[in-house]
Design a protein around this nucleic acid. Structure first.
Length: 271
DNA sequence: CAGTGGGCCTGAGTGC
DNA sequence: TGCACTCAGGCCCACT
């Protein structure tokens, strides 16, 4: 499910409600991608100072350390004064003085990891290699250009790797490359500065627009209040193979890049 | 060293 | 209806 817009939509949907809450109990279900890294009971009594986002991670700041939440491919978070009895795919739950935080994740590619602080080795391992935040001032055109010039990988795969800029997953990578009229298999270092600028602008615009739209709900994404997104109604190429390109009418094509499906317009994005 | 591909899990959808 | 198979929004890590 979750690329940057979905994670940011999730964050916004309960950041204020959970801030200031005191953890009263913790429930863990089946193992997630990584172990929690602490005794769940040690979280009881912690106070929630705030909820931030870095890339596709949610950072729940506590008065003692922080929890890193990742939604993997199929994760979603709910936060409400109370929730129904946990189901088989609800693998982590914090009961707090202000509501119940629950992670639902059928495929269990997600994770909840405790770190004592941002210098904790686990925090560094997970967050240390992340690229620029695309919706922040940190994301600059010169730095983006330098990042692309340093890699001869295919641009789509470089975007997915998140080492240059974070948060662009499989859906949005196809979308931004379409808007910038760049073929997804183009070697990053060979893209001219004019097209790099178009890509830079497309990343900012598409991600910001997707956040406004409440994210993309393909199957099961919803925010912490259970509301779905509707950016899927605005995609130009993702999931539209054989449908006419919105700009030129050519049928949208698809191919595989590193096990992931890439959608593109063979006319608008001719290599 | 950079770049590619396997694997982690489960559920939904498709074709026979 | 049932079974086998493919595919899915991410990311670490072993390998080349």
């Amino acid at each position: 499910m979750p690329e940057l817009p979905e994670v940011e939509v999730t964050r916004r949907s309960f950041a204020l409600e959970i801030t200031g809450a005191r953890v009263e109990s913790v429930r863990v279900g089946k193992p997630l991608r990584w172990p929690l890294g602490c005794d769940p009971q040690s979280l009881v009594g912690c106070k929630v100072l705030g909820l931030r986002r870095r890339g596709k991670y949610l950072l729940l700041d506590l008065n003692r350390g922080l929890l890193l939440l990742h939604l993997g491919m199929s994760g979603s978070v709910r936060f409400a004064p109370s929730l129904p009895v946990p189901g088989v795919h609800d693998h982590f739950e914090l009961l707090t003085s202000q509501g119940v935080l629950r992670l639902h994740d059928p495929r269990r590619f997600g994770a909840v990891v405790y770190a004592s602080g941002e210098q904790d080795p686990m925090a560094i391992k997970l967050l240390g290699g992340l690229g620029m935040e695309p919706l922040s001032d940190q994301f600059s055109l010169p730095a983006f250009l330098a990042g692309l010039q340093a890699s001869r990988a295919a641009i789509k795969q470089l975007l997915l790797a998140g080492r240059v800029v974070v948060g662009v997953g499989n859906i949005y990578a196809s979308e931004v490359l379409f808007l910038a009229k760049i073929h997804p298999a183009t070697a990053a270092s060979s893209i001219g500065s004019t097209q790099v600028q178009a890509l830079y602008l497309a990343i900012r615009e598409v991600l910001a627009r997707a956040v406004e739209a409440g994210g993309t709900t393909l199957r099961d994404f919803s925010n912490a209040n259970g509301m779905t997104g509707h950016f899927q109604q605005e995609t130009h190429v993702y999931g539209r193979d054989n449908a006419p390109c919105h700009f030129c009418g050519t049928p949208i094509g698809l191919f595989k890049q590193g096990q992931r499906t890439t959608y593109f317009c063979p006319q608008c994005q001719s290599a």
